[in-house]
Amino acid sequence: MILRPKLPGIFLRTAGLVRADVIFRNTVPWGNGTIAFTAAERVRGLQHLPAFLKLLPGSKPS
């Protein structure tokens, strides 16, 4: 799903979430010039997730 500028608000309201409680993060945070990403890029992105979560006290992955 590609989130357009107005869609995050609709998505959050539909899910019953408050924007202040949500962080959007790219799966491939460094970008690859396309919307698609490879399995290797996904693995590389997930390797960075633990360090990212350490920046967010009290966060829990879902």
Rank of each mutant, 00 (worst) to 15 (best):
F37E: 03
A51S: 10
R4M: 11
F52D: 04
A15P: 02
H48W: 15
W30M: 02
N32V: 15
A20G: 08
F52L: 04
P61C: 10
A40T: 07
K60P: 00
L7T: 15
L53A: 13
G33A: 09
F37A: 14
K6S: 13
F52E: 11
L3Y: 10
D21H: 14
K6A: 12
A15R: 12
P8V: 01
F11E: 02
I35G: 08
P5A: 08
G16M: 02
V18C: 09
R25S: 12
F52I: 03
N26M: 15
S59I: 00
A39I: 13
L12S: 10
L3K: 09
P8F: 03
L12V: 10
K60Q: 04
S62D: 11
K54M: 09
T38S: 14
L49H: 07
V18H: 07
L55P: 00
R42Q: 03
P57G: 07
A39M: 05
P50V: 14
R19G: 03
I10S: 15
L49A: 10
L12A: 12
Q47L: 13
H48P: 01
G16D: 02
F37W: 10
S62E: 10
K60W: 03
R4D: 14
S59D: 00
P61W: 10
G58P: 00
L53W: 00
A20I: 01
L56C: 03
K54W: 14
P8L: 04
F52N: 13
I23D: 01
G16F: 01
N26R: 10
V28P: 00
L49I: 12
V18M: 06
F24P: 00
H48G: 12
E41M: 11
A20E: 03
T14D: 11
L53R: 08
V22M: 08
I23M: 05
E41T: 04
K6P: 02
R13C: 13
R44M: 00
D21C: 12
K60F: 02
H48C: 02
I2Y: 09
A36I: 14
P50C: 09
P57C: 09
P5Y: 12
K60D: 09
L55V: 01
P61V: 03
K54Q: 07
G31L: 08
I10L: 08
K6Q: 13
L46T: 11
I23V: 04
S59F: 00
